[in-house]
Nucleic acid binder design. Structure first.
Length: 720
DNA sequence: ATTCAATTTTG
DNA sequence: AAAATTGAA
């Protein structure tokens, strides 16, 4: 009898160019499995729109697998491993195939699953189904992981071997013998009853599912790609590929996308069409950014909670839930920002330009911790993607060597006139401003009273005044930077003291000399590598095991927890350590165990690294840092306040939680009904529970000393 | 050819 | 916001 294999589908919901599926089909009969396992997602439980997409995509995949002869087995569980083992036992399957994922949660989970399966004598075969190049195949000349995008992408484009042509879908599949327990997509509970009406509207704009993804690709190749270079500036209309949700769930293989676009490029190059070539280069670059996001996530698996640059750890984030709320609701008083936030809320979609605008505003004007914004994006975006969003938020928040500077403050008014010159975008999403003439549409606060009155706008009532003036925001940001440097200096001094008292050289951080803000230290996690000349790279997924908080949480919930799903989610989201910023400040001095205040989920990384896996060499940076971490105080902002329930289980907790925000009377809690109608845009948000998680958090440092001096000068000039 | 201003690009 | 590029004078 032929071997029987499980294909574990995750975010590769397609039949075409799916290496795991093809390999399994070659080996014999195939059991396609999808496991819905929210317990393993920890704080990164997918939001409503994302779950809607997933559900539709699963239905679609199931239909096509059925027609090939082996329906999709769908299960809901607390542990992926348990389900895989159970199915293996029930069917006698001896092998499991799956494609690699690179987000921090998956890296740890898959590592555990692989070990667990191996211990039970089941062989595991994993493939690359998500990237052009595996992260461990691309290094710089010194053998180090890249930390800037351009160099990385150049290297990728010049790899010795061209990416292979995409694989065809299997013609037919042999299913398992006998019947296996399976849920229907409906029974997985991906969509709450209260969410259905809102979700119904999504179906008008989007068609999840791998064959629809292929159609979208076709449409893009014949449509927006032709004008991509020029049109991608425009914030309005269909100027981009709109493929990102398809890509997130792996309905479309990046390899195929690359292949198709590349083929076009050949044609255009032959015809000497420089415009066409330009289009393709630009589009492929955005594919490159997606690759890079996976690359970073793999090589720097802490970047979902800490900036890539190891400096700037003492930046005083503003832990202000009122600001956070105003931002989410699109009530900042800056029309372009508000329009973007309303569109996000209503549709789950934003043009990349607008994502940059609103996220910059969040970080620079409001000084909210970027992780808060990132979490909100995760909860609301249709194409929410952990790796891409981490990259995006680090990019705008001064956390990357090649990203925006921290003190770069883009002016939303100017951006408004650049990206939305006619104000159409703003008018669409801010109906209250729709009658305002172009002249004032992006800065209503300057408009004469008569103009406002004529347009039916009453600032402060109808539409808010700017939540913070640009000049004030700028000064505040500079002050915060100054504060940060002071703290950093103090920190360094105390660290130096500590060393004299016996820690010795072990805490020495390479490159410590010189002004700290001149350095651009990147936190490195050393992943075991194989000598380039040793022939082929390992085909298996490597796992850098830096046990960061949420990885540990995730890992813990995989392995040990057995609480009912709903409770579990609610607890990971709300239980967190009650370390309100006020009391945290007191724990600064005289804490015997520096990690005490951190409660659950936070563990001395130097210890846990040892306890964990030998693959990893933690470098000294991290060790030094874990010592320091416990002493940090009010800039603790790692905790992301809950902005709205993403699971029914949370609703009650929320209702009882105090709403910290006075202003705007909130309509409706708990219900997730947002609609595409404008009247509903008047804001409906759940209340926020204050959720002060312990926080290792975001830190970073400006990059050049010159920059600081210059900004001081500019400030002086402004003052004159 | 040279300079300055405007525009575009920047991960 | 700043650097790089283009274009007009």
């Amino acid at each position: 009898m032929a071997a029987c294999s499980i294909v574990w589908f995750r975010r590769d919901l397609r039949l075409e160019d799916n290496p795991a599926l093809v390999a399994a089909a070659r080996a014999g009969s195939v059991i396609p499995v999808f496991i819905w396992c929210p317990a393993e997602d920890g704080q990164f439980h997918p939001g409503r729109v994302s779950r809607w997409w997933l559900k539709q995509s699963l239905i679609h995949l199931d239909t096509s697998l059925r027609s090939l002869g082996s329906p999709l087995i769908m299960r809901k569980a607390h542990s992926s491993l348990t389900v895989l083992l159970e199915i293996a036992e029930a069917t006698g399957a001896t092998q499991v195939f799956f494609n690699h994922l690179y987000d921090p949660v998956s890296l740890v989970r898959d590592h555990g699953v692989k070990q667990g399966l191996a211990e039970c004598g089941i062989s595991v075969h994993t493939s690359n189904g998500d990237l052009l190049n595996e992260p461990w195949e691309v290094y710089d000349d010194e053998g180090q992981a890249f930390t800037v995008f351009n160099a990385y992408w150049q290297k990728c484009l010049n790899m010795p071997s061209e990416p292979e042509a995409p694989l065809l879908p299997p013609r037919r599949l042999t299913g398992p013998i006998g019947k296996i327990v399976s849920y229907s997509a409906e029974e997985l509970g991906l969509e709450d009853l209260s969410e259905k009406s809102s979700n119904a509207l999504l179906a008008r704009a989007w068609c999840p599912g791998w064959s629809h993804a292929n159609k979208s690709l076709e449409a893009f190749l014949r449509g927006a790609l032709l004008e991509y270079a020029t049109d991608r500036q425009k914030v309005d209309g269909v100027t981009t590929s709109l493929l990102s949700p398809h890509l997130h769930f792996g309905e479309l293989s990046v390899r195929k996308l690359f292949y198709e676009v590349h083929t076009k490029q050949f044609a255009w190059t032959r015809e000497g069409s420089t415009v066409g070539e330009q289009n393709v280069t630009l589009f492929l670059r955005s594919i490159g950014l997606r690759e890079y996001s996976r690359y970073l996530s793999f090589h720097f698996p802490f970047t979902h909670e800490r900036s890539l640059l190891a400096n700037l750890k003492s930046f005083p984030w503003r832990v202000d839930e009122g600001y956070f709320k105003a931002w989410r609701q699109g009530r900042t008083g800056y029309p372009l920002v508000d329009a973007g936030m309303r569109e996000l809320w209503a549709t789950g979609w934003l043009h990349n330009r607008i994502r940059v605008v609103v996220s910059s505003f969040c970080v620079k004007f409001l000084q909210l911790p970027w992780r808060w914004g990132m979490k909100y994006f995760w909860d609301t975006l249709l194409d929410a993607d952990l790796e891409s969003d981490v990259l995006g938020w680090q990019y705008i928040s001064g956390s990357l060597p090649d990203g925006h500077e921290l003190d770069r403050m883009d002016n939303p008014q100017l951006e408004g006139y650049r990206f939305d010159p006619d104000g159409e975008y703003v008018r669409r999403w801010l109906p209250e401003l729709s009658r305002l003439p172009n002249e004032w549409i992006h800065h209503p606060w300057d408009a004469p009273l008569s103009a406002l009155r004529a347009a039916g706008v009453e600032l402060g009532t109808n539409y808010p005044r700017p939540i913070v003036e640009i000049g004030v925001a700028r000064e505040r940001l500079q002050a915060s930077l100054a504060e940060m440097w002071e703290k950093e200096a103090a920190l360094k001094a105390s660290l130096a003291n500590g060393m004299e008292e016996g820690l010795g050289e072990t805490t020495e951080v390479p490159g410590t000399g010189g002004p700290s803000h001149e350095r651009m230290d990147v936190h490195r996690v050393v992943v075991r590598r194989f000598a380039p000349h040793s022939g082929s790279f390992p085909r298996d997924q490597l796992v850098p095991d830096l046990p960061t908080e949420s990885q540990q949480q995730a890992a813990a919930s995989i392995m040990h927890q057995s609480i009912p799903i709903e409770e579990d989610i609610a607890s990971t989201a709300t239980m967190p350590p009650p370390v309100p910023s006020a009391s945290a400040g007191m724990s600064l001095v005289g804490v015997s165990n520096p990690l005490e205040g951190h409660v659950r989920g936070s563990v001395d990384r130097s210890q846990s690294a040892q306890a964990a896996v030998p693959i990893l060499d933690l470098d000294l940076n991290s060790t030094a840092e874990s010592v320091v971490a416990g002493g940090r105080t009010e800039s603790e902002s790692g905790a992301v306040p809950i902005w709205s329930p993403s699971v029914p289980g949370q609703v009650q907790q929320q209702a009882s939680a105090e709403c910290l925000v006075p202003e705007v009377a909130d309509v409706q809690q708990g219900g997730f009904s947002r609609r595409l109608t404008q009247s509903m845009l008047r804001v409906n948000q759940g209340a926020m529970a204050s959720n002060k998680q312990d926080s290792e958090d975001d830190f970073f440092v400006p990059k050049r000393e010159g920059k600081w001096k210059r900004t001081v000068k500019q400030q002086a000039k402004r003052n004159c």
